Simulated assay, not measured.
Amino acid sequence: MEIKITAEGLVLFIVAVAVILITVYLVKLLKNLIELLKNANDFFKENRKNLDETLNNVNSITASAKNKVDYLDKFLKSSDEVAASNDFSNIVSIAQAAFDLYDQIKGVFPKKKRHRK
């Protein structure tokens, strides 16, 4: 018994294997995508109240952040003077303002314990 392998048969075999592999890959990809979308949907459902509250307060949040940035700009615009004088109190006040801004932005998003499923 002889098996003849032709170029056409070999190409068809390679294409068939490639199609099968691509199909399996796409099925796995779609399964992972569906799981990701379910997780995102659950996250948004759980945090809907916080998200709505944040979106409603976005003007006050940005106004407060603008005040802090303006305060920092006051010192940073005179950076030549600060660098030349190397005044420790100015550096401390800039750092304190930066930490205050960070704390205020961090306070907008409440801490939530995440449980792994």
Rank of each mutant, 00 (worst) to 15 (best):
A63N: 11
I61N: 00
L55R: 06
N41M: 12
S93K: 11
I22V: 10
Y102N: 11
L26D: 02
L33G: 11
T54D: 02
L21C: 05
T23K: 08
E46T: 09
A95H: 12
Y25G: 13
V58K: 15
D80V: 15
A18N: 02
A65W: 03
V11K: 10
K28Y: 14
L101I: 02
L36P: 01
I91P: 03
A95R: 10
Q96P: 00
K28F: 14
Q96C: 00
F44A: 14
A83K: 14
L10H: 07
L55V: 09
A97S: 03
S79M: 13
K74V: 03
N50A: 12
A95V: 05
I34H: 13
L55F: 08
L55W: 03
V19Q: 06
D87A: 07
I14Q: 12
T23Q: 12
K66S: 12
D100F: 04
A63I: 00
I105D: 05
F44Y: 04
F75H: 10
A16Y: 10
V69W: 02
I61R: 00
N32C: 05
N47H: 02
N50S: 15
G107H: 06
S85N: 14
A65Y: 07
F99C: 01
T54H: 07
Q104H: 02
Y25W: 13
V92Q: 08
K38F: 04
D80Y: 06
L26M: 07
K31D: 10
I105P: 01
L21M: 13
F13K: 15
S89L: 15
Q104P: 03
I34M: 07
A16D: 05
L101D: 00
K66C: 06
V17T: 12
D52A: 05
L72D: 01
I91E: 09
Q96Y: 11
V108N: 01
L51M: 14
N90Y: 11
V15Y: 02
Q104M: 09
N32M: 13
I105M: 06
Y71H: 05
K45H: 07
L76M: 07
A63M: 01
K66T: 15
F99Y: 08
V69K: 04
L72P: 00
N41C: 07
D103I: 03
K28M: 15
A65D: 05
A84C: 04
V15N: 02
D70P: 08
T62E: 11
S79L: 09
N47Q: 06
A83G: 13
L36R: 15
Y25V: 05
F43H: 11
A98P: 00
V24W: 08
L55I: 13
F43N: 05
D87Q: 10
Q104L: 09
N59M: 13
G9C: 03
K45Q: 09
A65H: 01
V69C: 01
L26G: 08
N57F: 03
D100V: 04
Q104Y: 11
N32R: 12
S93I: 05
A40T: 12
